[in-house]
């Protein structure tokens, strides 16, 4: 399988602190989990790929242009209705009003929240808000979706629902890169695991192999620690 994104000698520092260094990566998988301890640089790596941050050295190369979107740990909705929130991204892309309405309502239905269409986004529960955030990006029908700990602040029920939605987005052909703390989630969703520690990319391993036989001692120690 040919890769769709390539990172070459990527380095990112903040002030004097080096967050990421010498990241070399070619990503071809459709569903990738980015795992590693706190402060490993997972969020920074996602933002570099998505283009929210610029690398201090190295480059991010997209062999062919792909539309992309991102969902953050906290669903940052605008103070307006659910419908307007979902339509906002489409509006920025110049989609016509009728088409916007159609796509927004359809995305809302796919996340199972059609009944909230006229409610105020910021008044909903955390789980509902995160599902709205997913509907917002889903309506854009991106070819690549980055997710930064999308379930970290949710209760188990909401987490389950969000995972289902992510699975469906992936099933619709969207490539997914998800930073997560939840190893079970990584296992359930991903095909490939990127293991990041202290700003270095230590492993790029198929998911089944990673959880049975990580290639590095660091990942082994991390798994042992996490699974207790």
């Amino acid at each position: 399988m040919s890769h769709w994104i390539e990172l070459r000698s990527l380095r990112r520092t903040e002030g004097t602190v080096c967050i990421l260094s010498d990241i070399e990566l070619k990503l071809g998988a459709g569903k990738t989990a980015l795992i590693g301890p706190n402060g490993a640089g997972k969020s920074t790596l996602l933002r570099l790929m998505h283009g929210l941050l610029r690398p201090d050295a190295g480059s991010v190369i997209w062999p062919r242009p792909l539309t992309q979107a991102m969902v953050f740990q906290r669903p940052i909705l605008l103070r307006t209705t659910v419908l307007a929130n979902i339509e906002y991204g489409l509006k920025l892309r110049g989609v016509s009003a009728r088409e916007r309405r159609k796509r927004a309502l359809s995305a809302l239905e796919r996340v199972g929240l059609s009944h909230l269409v006229q409610r105020q986004g910021r008044r909903l529960s955390g789980g509902e808000q995160q599902r709205i955030a997913l509907a917002r990006v889903w309506a854009l029908e991106p070819q690549v979706l980055f997710l930064d700990e999308p379930t970290a602040s949710l209760d188990p029920l909401s987490r389950h629902e969000v995972e289902r939605i992510i699975g469906e987005i992936a099933a619709s052909g969207t490539k997914i890169v998800m930073a997560t703390h939840n190893l079970g989630q990584a296992r359930r969703i991903a095909e490939e695991v990127l293991y990041l520690e202290a700003g270095r990319l230590l492993e790029q391993t198929p998911v089944s192999e990673f959880f049975h036989q990580p290639r590095t001692a660091a990942a082994r120690a991390f798994l042992a620690e996490e699974t207790g």
Partner: peptide, 21 residues
């Protein structure tokens, strides 16, 4: 900032959105 830029809003557009917000 990140959310709006991710959705594709320019700075000017983001400014307008945030005024309303």
């Amino acid at each position: 900032r990140e959310q709006l830029r991710s959705l594709g809003a320019s700075r000017l557009r983001a400014g307008r959105t945030l005024i309303w917000n």
